[in-house]
């Protein structure tokens, strides 16, 4: 699904982008973003999931954040945003407090997301609505926040493979056509195959980022010594200039 979301994001080919992964969970999408050469920030409300993402050693920055509280990113920070199976959670009221009603949460989410994205750009949010009313509520609030675009449904007639994507546009509203959903009865996952086949055809070859090594101890010691020599007071004295892998401890 991440591959399909990236396809719908329609980023310029072969350029690494700076992306937001909304509800990054354990870093499954993040691994794919890494592999595609993108830089990214992932936010998730579940510390246990972020812990798994740390163990996975993904490259993105991980934030403990409740998307219903809104984002604090400056205007135009990201080249795009993706979200896999997350935003339906915004439809649940977290507490009885008025700020946590679904319309409030959705409004803060879409307003601050819209502002955090560059103009033009896209956000592709795959989610699981339980009714058409839910789709209606979500799209109307997204529109009020300034987004164009609409809903893309892949395999609408397949119970198993049906997927709903909210494909939102920032800027150049009318110029962008909402992409067509995939048709037929294909099984889930064929979207990935299509995307990869297209990449192969276009001859895009990305470096295998995951295989690269962590910088040698020598390099780090050199940097450490350099910082020491400068003797700056502000150098954090408890810095861990080590090449070791991080431990996931919460």
């Amino acid at each position: 699904m991440t591959y399909r979301a990236l396809e719908l994001l329609n980023l310029p080919e072969d350029e690494p982008a700076f992306l937001l992964d909304i509800g990054c969970g354990s870093g499954l999408s993040g691994e794919i973003l890494d592999e595609q050469g993108h830089h990214w920030v992932g936010v998730d409300v579940a510390p246990s999931m972020l812990e798994v993402a740390l163990e996975r050693e993904v490259e993105g920055d991980l934030f403990l954040q409740d998307i219903g509280q809104g984002f604090g990113f400056r205007a135009g920070s990201f080249d795009g945003a993706i979200s896999i199976s997350v935003i339906q959670w915004l439809l649940n009221a977290e507490t009885s407090h008025p700020t946590s009603s679904p319309p409030h949460r959705l409004t803060r989410f879409f307003t601050t997301l819209h502002s955090a994205l560059r103009n033009p750009s896209r956000a592709v949010l795959q989610f699981y609505p339980t009714s058409d009313d839910q789709i209606q509520l979500i799209t109307s609030i997204a529109q009020k926040a300034g987004f164009g675009g609409g809903v893309v449904v892949d395999y609408p007639n397949s119970k198993k493979a049906r997927k709903v994507f909210l494909c939102l546009f920032v800027g150049s509203g009318g110029a962008q056509q909402v992409p067509k959903g995939l048709e037929g009865e294909e099984e889930a996952g064929s979207g990935k195959a299509m995307f990869e086949a297209r990449r192969e055809r276009s001859g895009v070859k990305r470096s295998d980022k995951k295989r690269k090594s962590i910088k040698g101890k020598e390099w780090i010691l050199k940097k450490k010594e350099l910082y020491r020599k400068r003797g700056k007071e502000s150098v954090p004295n408890d810095s861990k200039f080590t090449g070791r892998k991080r431990k996931a401890v919460f």
Binding site: V43, V45, P47, L50, L54, L62, F63, L64, Q65, D66, Q69, G70, G72, T95, H97, T99, S100, R108, R246, K247, A248, V249, F250
Partner: peptide
């Protein structure tokens, strides 16, 4: 920031 992860969660009264 703990274990590399910043805690961006707000208390109820801090939510816009």
């Amino acid at each position: 920031i703990s274990n590399g992860i910043p805690n961006m969660l707000l208390a109820e009264h801090e939510i816009a």
